[in-house]
């Protein structure tokens, strides 16, 4: 499970703390790590600001060598991996007492996946990933099965804007899975734009990515499924919407992290009857809010929770308020 914040100061760390404090550590094996932003610059720049996480006895954790040496708990080393970060190799350990630790795990999705694969040896029931700041990609279904989204006044201080921007992200996360047949056909295709016609035949479009400017949808009258393996962007979506022969087409993307489309453009597409689905989906468990922005502006917590919950059809929590 990933925990991601839509902006700094949206309460991602509070959320992680809440989750770790409330999990049944006696009956489940829980491991926690974090993913640094690719290139790791932020970890290095903000390493002093990075908050310490309180672990409970029995929890497993993955962090860098440097942060392991600074730990404030007693722990047993389980593994020293080949994955390196700017703060040294990623080490895995088990907390033998409760206490505090700085988390700095694998620095890319791929190395995170490898780390999680290695964790299988230790019969871990749940891995919790402290996602990178404002990087939804760390919550990709390729890495985690479920996620918690942290949003708040730091993302937008205007209540209506905040609700609609957050609802857009939630809409993307909740996009439906495409058919099993499509999943089997399209999953191996990692680049390019492809379509499946009515007879079920798979064809590749000449344009290399959806970013290409000169995409022409020709000879696609009997196209049923249009698949964008890479990023889906505004221009491409607009072209699909404006093309009459593609009205009934099901547009498929790999997962929600591949969609880089403005909320307005996305809404226009859906309004025009367009359908977007995904090959991989993660389950959105909850949304948490921090009504206070770093500039000191405070939204009304109850109104925010109610309005957002109404817009996304999911429970919304203000963890600080509930904890108070």
């Amino acid at each position: 499970m990933s925990i991601v914040g839509l902006e700094k100061n949206t309460g991602k760390t509070e959320c992680l703390k809440y989750v770790l404090d409330n999990l049944p550590v006696e009956s489940k094996r829980i491991a926690v790590t974090s993913i640094g932003i690719d290139g790791e610059t932020v970890d290095q720049v903000t390493r002093t600001q990075k908050p310490e996480i309180s672990l409970r006895q029995g929890m497993y954790f993955g962090t860098s060598e440097m942060h392991y040496r600074q730990r404030r708990l007693v722990s047993e080393l389980i593994d020293v991996s080949d994955e390196t970060t700017s703060l040294g190799r990623v080490v895995t350990a088990k907390a033998l007492t409760g206490g505090k630790i700085l988390l700095s795990g694998p620095s890319s999705s791929n190395s995170l996946r490898r780390w999680m694969r290695d964790m299988r040896r230790h019969d871990i029931d749940l891995v919790i990933i402290d996602g990178a700041l404002s990087r939804l990609s760390s919550a990709s279904p390729a890495v985690s099965q479920s996620l918690i989204l942290a949003t708040g006044a730091a993302y937008s201080a205007n209540l209506t804007t905040l609700v609609s921007k957050t609802a857009h992200v939630v809409d993307l996360v909740n996009l439906e899975l495409t058919s099993e047949r499509n999943i089997n056909t399209l999953m191996p295709l990692e680049k390019g734009v492809w379509f499946i016609d009515k007879s079920g035949e798979l064809k590749e479009l000449d344009a290399v990515t959806s970013l290409s400017r000169d995409i022409h949808f020709e000879g696609m009258d009997d196209c049923e499924t249009l698949y964008v393996a890479g990023a889906l962007v505004d221009g491409f979506l607009e072209k699909v919407r404006k093309n009459k022969s593609l009205r009934q087409v099901e547009l498929v993307v790999r997962d929600f992290t591949k969609i880089f489309v403005a909320p307005q453009q996305f809404r226009l597409f859906i309004k025009a009857g367009g359908r977007i689905s995904v090959l991989q989906r993660s389950k959105l468990i909850a949304v948490t809010v921090n009504p206070t922005s770093p500039s000191g502006y405070v939204l009304d917590s109850d109104t925010l929770c109610d309005r957002l919950s109404e817009a996304i059809g999911l429970p919304v929590y203000d963890l600080l308020k509930n904890n108070r």
């Binding site: 060598e65 392991y68 040496r69 080393l77 020293v80 080490v91």
Partner: peptide, 8 residues
Amino acid sequence: LDDIELFE
């Protein structure tokens, strides 16, 4: 040696 080295 530190803990990590002893582990190794």
